[in-house]
Design a binder for these strands. Structure first.
Length: 461
RNA sequence: GGCUGCGUAGCAAAACGGUUAUGCAGUGGCCUGCAAAGCCAUCUACGGCGGUUCGACUCCGCCCGCAGCCUCCA
């Protein structure tokens, strides 16, 4: 039975879909004015893993992840670059898709863009105004009247009085209450703008997600996810907008993933302490990043460091080594391991425990290498369970021989030949020559391993 | 100041009111010509102080430390 921690109730709850067998899930995606960093990668990998698990459980999942392709930062960046906004966002959307593919993140079912959802956004704002929940300020911007929404703060555990007491928002004369947030901004000169009942303008950030999620999944859907930092105000505002406009419950389960940290500090654009996915990929194989992300629970903080990435690499090498030269064609699965794996994932997607099950399975497989009937079932189970985490799907030898950077095709052939020469030296009991070849390769980061059957194989360190 | 959450062995990271987490690293052994890989064994834990309990890392209280949100942020 699947349990999910719901931020709304601060408890793990048994998951019950709204409609039997179906799940609608919306995740806040990126604002595309720059490359994805490891923090973004975490959201993508975490919810990709959630999506894979729902499908494995047999649910008909509709997974929506939006793209915010219009906002202040995008406009600013485009101006700085002297670049057209559409061109800029397209460039970074493509880059994002590249990063996702590298990390084995499967594409969501729908990827709505804010700029293509303007009619839905305008419609929702009209409803909010009609219901008295929004108003046009004296500067022409449209605001949401926070005090008119009864449950404001229910997600983030804040209340309007506390928020006002700790007020840090700039006083905006156009607002009735400093906590009110903008739904529609009047166009400034040289900014992209759309026609609306309130004149030329563009949507505020929060209303975009309300409109896009509702449009793709309906007024009421099962799961809404995103980073912890979106809890307030973004998700709180989404609830106020959507529930205010439709009068229905917006979302049943709110899921928030923890941050990636560097030296115990949040990785973020504003602190400037971030690594982009493409930077990290120059140093580490993509699957190592994915493993690293899944090695801690999605709600826990994840500390980014070379040491951690290197450890993830070693751990992954152990799993691929177990699978090396294994037949994985069996359709039969080891029931115990599968049960333990499912139990871990059922417990709020506990991927660290799920990985521990894979390591136990790998040990059993290593022990069973001389029993082919047993080994094929264990190896097949290992590969199959790992696929639910988006791991271990490469050919083991290719993984073990590869590096983060491309090596020229000849290099492998040269290594193969040296390994053969060493094998010949071994057969002639010329240990000195055999060892010198091996030491030589080691210096180049190539580790030679002798198999019991007399053959040798190699991998890159 | 208000609101969340966290503090586990050398490092990373889980579970659980009483029993092995797991990975990396260390130590001893088996295997190997020697290695590597693998297997077996093994050493390091639950921030501090109290309380509840037959029994607490696990529940409760207080204290200390850390992070996040309260402004754009995944």
């Amino acid at each position: 039975m699947l349990k999910i921690y719901n931020t709304l109730t601060r408890k793990k709850e048994t998951f019950t879909p709204r409609v039997a067998g179906k799940v609608g899930m919306y995740v806040c995606g990126m604002t595309v004015y720059d490359y994805c960093h490891v923090g973004h990668a975490r959201v993508m990998v975490v919810f990709d893993t959630v999506a894979r698990y729902f499908r494995y459980l047999g649910y008909d999942l509709t997974y929506v992840r939006n793209v915010t392709d219009i906002d202040d930062k995008i406009i600013q960046r485009a101006n700085e670059n002297g670049e057209d906004i559409g061109q800029l966002t397209e460039r970074f959307i493509n880059a994002m898709h590249e990063d996702e593919r590298a990390l084995s993140v499967l594409p969501p079912d729908h990827e709505p863009k804010a700029t293509q959802s303007i009619p839905d956004i305008i419609h929702m704002i009209e409803v909010l105004i009609a219901k008295g929940l929004a108003y046009v300020g004296n500067n022409g911007d449209v605001f949401y009247a926070v005090t008119k929404f009864e449950n404001y703060g229910k997600l983030s555990g804040k209340n309007i009085d506390d928020l006002q007491a700790g007020e840090r928002v700039d006083v905006d004369k156009a607002k009735q209450n400093p906590l009110d947030f903008v739904l529609w901004k009047m166009a400034k000169i040289n900014e992209p703008a759309w026609e609306s009942p309130w004149g030329l303008g563009r949507p505020g950030w929060h209303i975009e997600c309300s409109a896009m999620s509702t449009c793709c999944l309906g007024n009421h859907f099962d799961i809404h996810g995103g980073g912890m930092d979106l809890q307030f105000p973004h998700h709180e505002n989404e609830i106020a907008q959507s529930e205010g406009a439709t009068g229905e419950t917006f979302v049943n389960v709110w899921m928030h993933n923890g941050f990636v940290r560097i030296n115990e500090e949040k990785m973020s654009k504003s602190l400037g302490n971030f690594f982009t996915v493409r930077e990290v990929l120059k140093q580490y194989k993509p699957e190592i990043i994915r493993f690293f992300i899944l090695s801690s629970h999605y709600r826990s903080p994840l500390n980014y460091s070379d040491e951690q990435l290197n450890e993830a690499g070693s751990a992954l090498t152990r799993l691929y080594t177990a699978l090396r030269d294994c037949d994985v064609s069996s359709l039969a699965f080891e029931a115990d391991y599968k049960a333990r794996f499912d139990q871990a994932m059922d417990d709020d997607f506990n991927t660290p425990v799920a990985l521990a099950v894979l390591f136990d399975l790998a040990r059993e497989l290593n022990k069973a290498k001389d029993q082919p009937e047993k080994a094929v079932v264990l190896a097949s189970t290992l590969k199959h369970l790992a696929s639910l985490l988006g791991l271990l799907q490469e050919d083991p030898l290719s993984f073990l021989k590869s590096t983060a950077t491309e090596v020229d095709a000849d290099a492998d052939a040269v290594i193969d030949q040296l390994v053969q020469e060493r094998l010949a030296a071994k057969q002639a009991k010329n240990w000195a020559l055999a060892d010198s070849i091996r030491d030589n390769l080691k210096e180049q980061g190539v580790i030679v391993e002798d198999a019991p059957n007399g053959n040798s194989t190699w991998r890159r360190d």
